[in-house]
Nucleic acid binder design. Structure first.
Lengths: 281, 281
DNA sequence: GAAATGCATTGCATAATACGCAAATAGGAG
DNA sequence: CTCCTATTTGCGTATTATGCAATGCATTTC
């Protein structure tokens, strides 16, 4: 096969895996480009973004379509991710033991509290719904798998805000703070500045729950708690939501059940096993 | 590159996409194999399942790992799906509106089967038509966008009756059962009592279709199937209808096409996420 | 209405690259 | 320590992916 005859400057292994296959690396980078679009994308746009000739990308896409990872809409249309991509993602998520175990009991939690319940994990877009259990009282909602929540404005978001490492949050947090500042928005319990956010997250970690009342979705109250792994990092957020504000009260049965649920599915880091940095290296 | 020197029996395009790339097709089939396992898998198992030499699979996996689609656990360990796979799936699902996706092909379904076709979703009033494709043979009908169907009396309604959670149906189902009981109505295949309804829905779930012949609308036969999401919950019902009763027969081309259409647009949940039939009732 | 533009798609010749085989290395068990 | 299983890596070959350019299709522009 030919290579671009021009540059061969010596810097060779720029994006190739050791022991991997060049063509496959190239193809997978196209898949990532396809994912990075918000919706269906034209061949020329994908090719430009990937830095490859359209004919090459077209052949990759033909194989992706064959595998079901991509689809082509309408006659002579644009490309989008396909059903197989969705199934792959669901399978990947279901390999996460925390999600699987919590899913098994999520229905019980919803039934016991009489509220709708969801599980969310962090993906690079933000907190993302991976499991949803509609309660008896909630018929319709704009929330579904793949929905993402804001960090500042939602119970689920605030849990990640409080438990996730600063550097993972940084990009999105800055963005939301800036938007809030320029729009002149502020909330009853939060101002759009770093100090105020710090105070909020401290409170959330102390109480082990975060909540909002009818802010992100009008008329809907939500309360969320964290399921953590052996390092004390958040793996999943569990959120209950409904139309009554009473579920937020410190002593409420709902709140107690939620915290209990989160604790039972968390792994409490053993306190006196030496600190993690010793074991890490 | 070499090919298996032995068999080249002439059966050529067994699994290759037209205009696609052979190596990529092979690699993606490995990805699918990896997904088909319940958890982490050994190289030799993946290779055997994919029908390829381990060295080939190993190189594919190296590229998958490089792209984040796969991970290798521990030292010299087994392979599993990676974070990028989850992100890919979330992206696919969040931009994937079941109604829109199915709408794109509804016309083809109608043309291929020669029947009229519709899509219906659940709104608080009941099954509601959101897309309608009049077939070549059907000129006029009382069905239009926004029409709602009864639960007991229509193919579309019976699909929702069989796949939707009990609590969402409760109100309307009670109402219809009561009306039928007081009016003394009954049907050839259904009595207005809970046990009879239960038997019907079990049959529907088993056969994956529900149908009626000229009952809801005299002289009109209809057959319906469910498009389900990642949790096994119904998102949309697809219904074909026409004046001939033959389309209801188990082996008919129409029925086969319908079930195929529905499964192609459904997301099959992995076994570990708990199965939907447990939660359905 | 006709030309023109912007796409996606597809032959084709070439040599670059992925493949199969087999050797090597690592890990685990007895 | 030794064997055994399973993963990883070199290497030569010809199969196959690639860039280029021509084709086809559709929508737009004048």
């Amino acid at each position: 096969m030919k290579r671009k005859p021009a540059k061969d400057t010596g810097e060779e292994s720029g994006g190739t895996a050791p022991g991997g296959i060049q063509a496959l690396d190239a193809a997978l980078s196209v898949l990532r480009v396809l994912r990075s679009f918000d919706g269906p994308a034209a061949l020329s746009d994908i090719a430009r973004e990937a830095g490859m000739p359209p004919s090459k990308v077209h052949r990759y896409l033909a194989s992706f379509i064959h595998a079901g990872l991509a689809v082509q809409k309408e006659r002579s249309g644009r490309y989008d991710l396909g059903r197989e991509a969705a199934e792959l993602g669901v399978a990947a998520i279901s390999r996460n033991n925390f999600v699987v175990r919590a899913s098994d009991e999520l229905e019980e939690l919803a039934a016991a509290t009489g509220q709708a319940a969801l599980l969310a994990v962090w993906s690079h877009h933000g907190p993302t719904v991976v499991r949803l259990e509609r309660g008896p009282n909630l018929t319709t909602t704009s929330i579904g798998l793949g929905s993402t929540f804001p960090l500042l404005d939602s119970a689920t978001g605030r849990i990640f805000l409080s438990y996730l490492a600063q550097q993972q949050l940084a990009g999105r947090l800055h963005h939301e703070l800036e938007r809030a500042a320029t729009a002149g928005v502020s909330w009853p319990d939060l101002n759009p500045d770093v100090a105020s956010v710090e105070a909020l997250t401290a409170k959330v970690r102390r109480e082990r729950v975060a909540y909002v009342d009818g802010r992100f979705i009008p008329g809907l109250s939500a309360i969320s708690s964290a399921i953590t792994n052996w390092q004390g990092e958040i793996e999943v957020a569990v959120t209950l939501f409904g139309t009554h504000k009473e579920l937020l009260e410190p002593g409420s049965a709902t709140r107690t059940a939620l915290v209990d649920f989160a604790s039972r599915h968390s792994i409490v880091p053993p306190a006196q096993l030496g600190n993690a940095s010793d074991r890490a290296r």
